[in-house]
Design a protein around this nucleic acid. Structure first.
Lengths: 109, 109
DNA sequence: TTCACTATATACACTAAGCACATAGTAACA
DNA sequence: TGTTACTATGTGCTTAGTGTATATAGTGAA
């Protein structure tokens, strides 16, 4: 398996655990998590959502919009909740790993 | 450019800032940084080192070994020191981003 | 001479991302 | 009426990076 960072997937799952939502909206909400303006690419969001649905972490349904075209609205599943739990565990490891790196660097200078 | 995590590159540069070293040895030293046993692949180490040399972050020279074949010994350059500094800055951002994610997750449960 | 360890490197297949582009609905305004 | 802006979803192409396997080769012990 590829060693993906999991940052994006975890953020999307947290947002969908809060409220059901759709790609274009999730894109904007992701700024809450400290993603920089130009570091997010909408096509990456859409492809990740489709991939997550394929893996059973979320489900989608179409919703009419009052302004603009239809929205594909996503909801988190039980598998998605478990996946999120795993990502959080991994991110805690990642965090302590980064702390180790920074500490070793500061001690070197 | 691809958005690499920078974890590996930062760790290698820190180790090379401490002491000049070579791929096979760096591989073992990386465990100090909390990399799990099977998450590290030696071919990835070698390829990263060659890539870093190509970008001028490190330089290499051959050294005879007392046991086994010759070693390609790497040293960090001034550009490498600057690159490491940048990675540390990025990792500090990454760390706070992960903290935000974990915090939001804990508040949801 | 066979095995284990040390040491470096490449070939092939696959995944994921960046970027560009296609499609399409609504709404304002000239 | 047409043009622009915003909303909304998605695919095609190219490239970067990883995992796995494999090739090569030196040393030392059984």
């Amino acid at each position: 398996m590829h060693n993906r960072s999991g940052l994006l997937e975890a953020c999307l799952l947290i947002l969908l655990k809060e409220n059901k939502s759709y790609g274009y909206n999730l894109m904007n909400d992701l700024h809450k998590f400290g993603f920089e303006e130009d570091s997010l690419n909408i096509s990456v969001i859409y492809r990740n959502l489709r991939s997550m649905e394929k893996r059973g972490l979320i489900t989608s349904s179409w919703a009419e919009s009052d302004q603009g075209p239809r929205k594909r609205v996503y909801e988190i599943t039980a598998d998605g909740e478990q996946d999120l739990k795993n990502w959080i565990w991994m991110l805690k490891n990642r965090k302590s790993q980064i702390e180790t790196i920074i500490e070793k660097y500061e001690n070197l200078k």
